[in-house]
Amino acid sequence: MPSTFGSNTFGGIFGIQKKDPNNDWMTRISDQIMKIMKERICPLIHLNCHPDLNCQQCINVPQSPAILELKSAVFKALFDASYNNEFKNMLVKDNNIIPHLTHPLIQFASYSQLDKKSDSQEQHNQQKSESTSSLSLITQSIDLLDRLISYNNICKVVINTPNALHSLSTLTCYKINIHFSQENDQLSFKIRNSSRWCLQQIHQFGETSAQSELINARYVGVLVITISTASGSGEEQDLEISNGLDFISDFLSNLNKGRSDYEPSFPPQPLLARRSDEQIEEEGGNEEIESQLIKKGDQYYYIKSQANRAKGAILNYFIEQDNRKPDCDSLFHLPSSTVYGVAIGKEKDKKTLKIWP
């Protein structure tokens, strides 16, 4: 019998919200909805918890694709509700949510590494055996983890969880350029995409120690793989390539110049910057970035502009722009020739200042 569970199972719950009088742009979940979430949905976090977690709230039921889909829908519902700090606090303190998210993805990443060592026929059999429900559950777990990282000290908790960052780094390349079916390919892409954004959040909300741990997990190296279209091993979507270049330039710029515009701030980290440069060289990143500079058809995602920024960050350049970068959303409504002209114009307006050879 087909499962009736889906990603929208609990979606209607979150339509009932009221404005927070203390904050115009945030909403506060009503007491009634909070009660429903706490009493009916949060307990489902603990369906078939792994024995290693020693979870006292565990609910043991026979495992099935329907149960995996239910749990995936639960995590999606929690993700939708987690803009609210009161709700985040309940997830963290009352449900010990973080290990329930990190443990499955660590296991999944470990299995995916074993798959790489098997021959192509074994990989094919393994791919067929991976249910769409299990892949969806991993994606929803990473998305919820991403949403919680900015709260309180969750970033530190994730960093201090053994193998968590290395597993996320591994999953940024999960099944990349391995194609079996359209559905599986889309789910694999979502896992890679969610993992990259989760690591980027750790960079954004992490202190100096977080940046060091990201380098230990080869964060910059796997970002280079994302943009590696020249070698044929990277993502095919322009948006992913643009984001990868943006993440590289942002990370290296923060290491080279320090971060003082928002908290947590930290001073320049030249040793970490050097280690990042080494990872880029090992993965052939300089050549890959150069290849993006000559890429054609860059109408919407500023790939050439992002490649220039990444190149400048690698060389420790300060790049100044005379004009503010156009709003990407507004450019979607312009003719492609107009958008392309703006992008090219921005390239010509750039000035660079080399500060070390």
Rank of each mutant, 00 (worst) to 15 (best):
S64W: 01
S64E: 03
A66H: 13
A66E: 15
I67S: 00
I67P: 00
L68W: 07
L68V: 08
S72R: 14
S72H: 05
A73K: 03
A73C: 06
V74F: 08
V74M: 09
F75P: 02
F75R: 14
K76Q: 15
A77R: 03
L78G: 04
F79L: 15
D80G: 04
A81P: 03
A81R: 03
S82R: 04
Y83H: 13
Y83K: 06
N85E: 14
E86L: 10
F87K: 04
N89T: 10
M90F: 00
L91S: 00
V92E: 07
K93E: 13
D94T: 00
D94G: 01
N95C: 11
I98W: 03
P99T: 09
T102S: 11
H103D: 05
H103I: 08
H103W: 13
F108L: 04
A109D: 01
S110Y: 13
S110N: 12
Y111F: 05
S112W: 01
Q113V: 06
Q113C: 07
L114S: 10
L114I: 12
L114T: 07
L114C: 02
L114P: 00
K117Y: 06
K117P: 00
S120A: 10
S120K: 10
S120C: 02
Q121R: 11
Q121S: 09
Q121P: 00
Q121G: 00
Q121D: 12
Q123I: 15
H124Y: 13
H124Q: 14
N125E: 15
N125I: 03
Q126D: 06
S129N: 14
E130Y: 13
T132H: 07
S133M: 06
S133N: 11
S134A: 09
S136P: 00
I138W: 01
I138L: 04
T139R: 07
Q140E: 15
L145G: 08
D146K: 13
L148V: 07
L148M: 08
L148H: 05
I149M: 05
I149W: 07
I149P: 09
Y151L: 01
Y151H: 14
N152F: 00
N153V: 04
C155D: 01
C155L: 02
C155K: 01
K156R: 03
V157Y: 00
N160H: 09
T161A: 07
T161W: 08
T161F: 12
P162W: 10
L165C: 04
H166T: 12
S167N: 05
S167M: 06
L168W: 03
L168I: 06
S169W: 06
S169A: 15
T170E: 13
T170S: 15
T170L: 00
L171W: 09
T172L: 02
T172S: 08
